[in-house]
Simulated scan of single mutants.
Amino acid sequence: MLLALNFDWLTNLLAILFVVACLYDARYDEYGTLTLAAAAMGLIVMAIEVLLRPAFEMSL
């Protein structure tokens, strides 16, 4: 239950993924689609964390 409410590990994982995607895109991809996808996933996870964490905490 504690792991489900703790989004810090997922945010850190997405930050590492974003850095790897930036390095890959800088070398191989001309359009930066991987970087945009990693950034979008990071924003979605942060939004979920901000919006859903208070609901989980109130339900406990």
Results as ranks from 00 to 15, higher is better:
Asn12Thr: 02
Pro54Arg: 15
Val45Lys: 09
Tyr24Cys: 03
Ala55Met: 15
Ala38Trp: 00
Ala39Asn: 10
Glu49Asn: 11
Glu30His: 01
Leu52Glu: 08
Met58Asn: 12
Thr35His: 00
Thr11Met: 10
Glu57Lys: 14
Ala15Gln: 14
Met1Cys: 00
Met1Arg: 12
Leu17Arg: 05
Phe7Tyr: 14
Ala39Asp: 07
Ala37Tyr: 04
Ala15Met: 11
Leu36Gln: 13
Pro54Gly: 12
Phe18Asp: 02
Leu23Thr: 04
Leu51Asn: 15
Glu49Phe: 03
Ala39Pro: 00
Ile44Met: 11
Leu13Gln: 11
Leu17His: 06
Phe18Thr: 05
Cys22Ser: 09
Phe56Asn: 10
Gly42Ser: 09
Met1Asn: 04
Met46Val: 07
Met1Phe: 08
Ala38Phe: 05
Ala15Phe: 04
Leu17Gly: 02
Leu3Gln: 15
Glu30Thr: 01
Gly42Phe: 03
Asn6Thr: 00
Met1Gly: 05
Phe7His: 11
Thr33Tyr: 07
Ser59Gln: 11
Met1Trp: 04
Phe18Lys: 11
Arg27Pro: 00
Phe56Thr: 10
Val20Arg: 05
Arg27His: 02
Leu23Pro: 00
Val50Phe: 09
Trp9Val: 01
Ala21Glu: 01
Arg27Ile: 09
Leu17Trp: 03
Ala26Val: 01
Leu52Met: 08
Leu51Lys: 13
Gly42Ile: 02
Leu5Phe: 09
Ile44Asn: 12
Leu13Thr: 07
Ala55Ser: 14
Val19Arg: 11
Ile16Cys: 09
Ala55Lys: 15
Asp25Cys: 03
Ile44Cys: 11
Val19Asn: 12
Leu5Ile: 07
Val19Asp: 10
Thr35Arg: 04
Leu10Val: 06
Val20Gln: 06
Met41Leu: 15
Arg53Thr: 15
Thr11Lys: 12
Thr35Glu: 02
Cys22His: 00
Ile48His: 05
Leu2Ile: 02
Leu51His: 10
Ala39Trp: 02
Phe7Val: 03
Ala21Asp: 03
Leu17Val: 05
Ile48Thr: 09
Ala47Gln: 14
Val45Trp: 07
Leu52Ser: 03
